[in-house]
Amino acid sequence: MDQVVSADMDDTWTVAGRSFRSRLVVGTGRYKDLEETAAAIEASGAEMVTVAVRRVNLSDPKAPMLQDFVDPKKYTYLPNTAGCHTANEAVRTLRLAREAGGWNLVKLEVLGPPPHLYPDMPGTFEAAEALIKDGFEVMVYCADDPLAAHRLEQMGCVAIMPLGAPIGSGLGIQNPAMLSLIIEQAKVPVLVDAGVGTASDAAIGMELGCDAVLLNSAIAHAREPVLMARAMKAAVEAGRFAYRAGRMPRRMGADPSSPLGGLIR
């Protein structure tokens, strides 16, 4: 038992020189209020959280702020570029994030239009190049395209984050074969980012061999977000255990579990 526990403690993943024990990265958006955000993140066990960068509301300068509830000293903030459609907007946004937070690990996402918000890969390449040149360590949201994923890795992105289904759709992982191909070729961490709807989806991502799972709406839009956060924590751990354990081979026919010898006659 002690050996198992100790092996679990050593089972970390590392991105840009930072190591994490939790393989669940959660967003901080779409919660009822900041109290619920804090409670759900605590329950998820996440050590890294994504955050957005937006204008301060000048007419309400004393409004509570995210970092009053989600302590940046306790959680690694991963600022995103949600809402940015050009490389210039992404770079300006993340330079502000770097100044506000003092770190250079960021999540790049350049999105196409609704209703799919599919990753805009030409825009993503352009922004990734500009950000890497400016000293950022870029975890990149991308299409489930092995060629695009490889190119982003060659450019110097520190983590590849293909979608499992459209953002906020909760459709689950629609592309296990493509994710497997991307995972197999990658030398940097691969996270499935977007599409997870419930705990089994997160477990599937981990069973495929993802280094971690990134999700937001699946927790924030659950009827009981804090309970779903616990479910996601357990699912990611279960999926990781299963991946490490190695699943049994699939077979078309039955193979009895009980011995055939010694039956009474």
Binding site: T28, V51, R54, R55, P72, N80, A100
Partner: peptide, 10 residues
């Protein structure tokens, strides 16, 4: 001037 802060986001 742009004055920004961190808010919840995914």
């Amino acid at each position: 001037l742009e004055i920004v802060h961190f808010i919840g986001g995914g």
